[in-house]
Amino acid sequence: MSRTNQALLLNAAERAAQRPEFLGWVLVKHMANCGIDSKALAASLRCTPDTMPRLFLCRRPRSEQFAQDIAFISARLSIDGGVLSRIVRQVESITAMTANMLPEVGTLLAARTRPESETSVDDRA
């Protein structure tokens, strides 16, 4: 691969990491959660740092074909599928837990005194 293409690929990987549809998004969350850099992540996945931009650009495994997608990605990019699987599951759990906590904020926001103009017919009766 040419140097230009390598630079373009790095840029693409960075942008993919901002979109939840891509593995890059999951991997960046994992690095932030664990306080590790991409070199350490590459080591844990048993691949070289050069593989990371390619991995970032893969789509996230589909929940209905999770094992199959993980196996496919790990075979194609020669990485440790078990580690990748654990990382994706862990990030998904943390994201889901964070999302589940959000409605409480909304409940607090809703508990306000309604202005006179919004008083319902039942209240006025």
Partner: peptide
């Protein structure tokens, strides 16, 4: 839905 097709297409089309 092949999850690796995107990275291959990126390598092929970016430049």
């Amino acid at each position: 839905g092949d999850p690796t097709a995107s990275e291959e297409a990126a390598r092929l089309l970016l430049e």
